[in-house]
């Protein structure tokens, strides 16, 4: 299944990945080849088979509703690229 350049661009937009034209064209070819390979699943009968999300039979794991210490804001700010007055600064989202 060959992906069109428009489809590759659309996926990159969804994934918020800025890609060069060269990357776009290489990824288009490589992803198409991988998607061809995915076709083998079509031949496997999964009628009535439930999906597996993970391999343990654990459901709705809960803990007691007790307050525990969390990391300090000052520690977390150490890795943040833009901090102002104790806030993470981002560019305006609405223009």
């Amino acid at each position: 299944m060959a992906l069109t350049p428009a489809e590759v661009r659309h996926i990159a937009t969804l994934a918020r990945l800025a890609l060069s034209d060269d990357e776009m064209s290489r990824l288009g070819t490589q992803l198409s080849a991988i998607l061809d390979h995915f076709e083998v699943l079509k031949d496997i009968d999964t009628e009535g088979v439930p999906p597996t999300a993970q391999s343990l039979d654990l459901h709705n794991v809960q803990r007691a509703d007790v307050v525990t210490p969390s990391m300090s804001a000052a520690d977390l700010e150490l890795n943040a690229p833009r901090v102002e007055d104790g806030y993470l600064r981002v560019r305006a989202v609405l223009e």
Binding site: F38, L41, I44, T46, V49, P50, P51, T52, A53
Partner: peptide, 14 residues
């Protein structure tokens, strides 16, 4: 076609 199908095949493999 992809993710859900893969999860079903995952059940068969298990």
């Amino acid at each position: 076609a992809y993710y859900l199908k893969a999860q079903k095949v995952r059940t068969l493999i298990r």
